Computed example of a mutant assay.
Amino acid sequence: MNLSGKVALVTGAAQGLGKAFSESLLSQGAKVCLADVKVQQGKTTAAEFQKTFGNDSAFFEKCDVSIADDVTNVFKKVKSKYGQIDILVNNAGIANETHWRKMVDINLVSVIQGTQLGIEYMSKEYGGNGGVIINVSSSAGLVPVFITPVYCAVKFGVVGFTRSVAVNPRNRSTSGIRFCCLCPAFTDTDIIKFKKDSGINMKYAPKILKSVGINK
């Protein structure tokens, strides 16, 4: 896919994997909306990218993906500014077993809403150009991880949802959209910095991280 002139929307883009995804897209000629709940970090990241890739290359939009209206609004803002959406990366996520309902909303419900809005804005059937929707799951969406059972459940959900949408005959034949699911292993970002109130058993976390090469 030639990314020159394409427009991407990336959630959770202020830092970590979302920032890395955005930088890669920008380096290949795409324009990117950086959506995140972290306002100051998001603005800093956007300014950094604008300095490197040009003032019109990227912009930040505050978005709490657990709030349906925020998600809808960011799609409207991207369409208004750039006229199209070609790439959607549903990346925002947290790891917190204590506040598990919030984690379900952020890690799974927002992916479902984002994908549905992506189809609405991108599908050739509705006047879009087609494109690609990438939902970010985790290796925890493929195998059990006993210290994070709810996180595992929602990431399994992202995998199952994405695969199911991808094989929908209507999507395959008329939308012009490809659906992908990424399942990264443990990555050294803020999400892996287990906090005391996360509900994750800290006794086992260091051993698991060390086993995959992250020394915490």
Rank of each mutant, 00 (worst) to 15 (best):
F21K: 01
L182M: 13
K196V: 06
L88F: 06
V145H: 03
V136L: 10
A8H: 08
A30P: 11
T98H: 14
C180V: 12
V159R: 10
G141K: 06
C181L: 02
A20F: 05
I67Q: 12
C181H: 05
N201T: 03
N90I: 03
S66M: 09
H99N: 15
I112P: 00
L25V: 11
N73I: 02
V39N: 13
T72E: 14
W100A: 15
M103K: 06
V109M: 09
Y82L: 10
F59K: 02
S138H: 03
G118M: 08
G160K: 00
E97T: 07
V150G: 08
N168H: 02
A13F: 08
N129E: 15
E97H: 05
E23D: 10
K76F: 07
T174P: 01
V78P: 08
L182A: 10
F146L: 05
A153R: 04
T115Q: 01
G5N: 13
K155E: 03
I85G: 00
A153Y: 07
P149G: 08
V212P: 04
K43T: 15
A185P: 13
L182Q: 07
S175E: 04
L182G: 04
I94G: 09
G16F: 02
R172K: 14
C183V: 09
I134M: 09
K77E: 14
I200E: 06
I67V: 12
Q41E: 15
K51L: 13
N135W: 09
G131D: 02
N96T: 08
V111S: 01
S211G: 12
L26M: 09
I177Q: 01
V89Y: 06
S123I: 02
D36V: 09
K196G: 01
K216A: 01
I200A: 00
K51Q: 15
G128C: 05
H99W: 11
A95G: 14
K76Q: 11
L34Q: 03
K81N: 15
Q28G: 13
S123V: 02
P144V: 07
V136W: 06
V78T: 12
K207M: 13
V143A: 05
F194P: 05
F186I: 10
V7D: 08
L3W: 11
G118I: 10
L34A: 04
S123K: 05
D70M: 09
L9W: 00
N2A: 14
I87N: 03
V74F: 11
P184S: 02
N90D: 08
K195D: 03
E61C: 11
L25N: 00
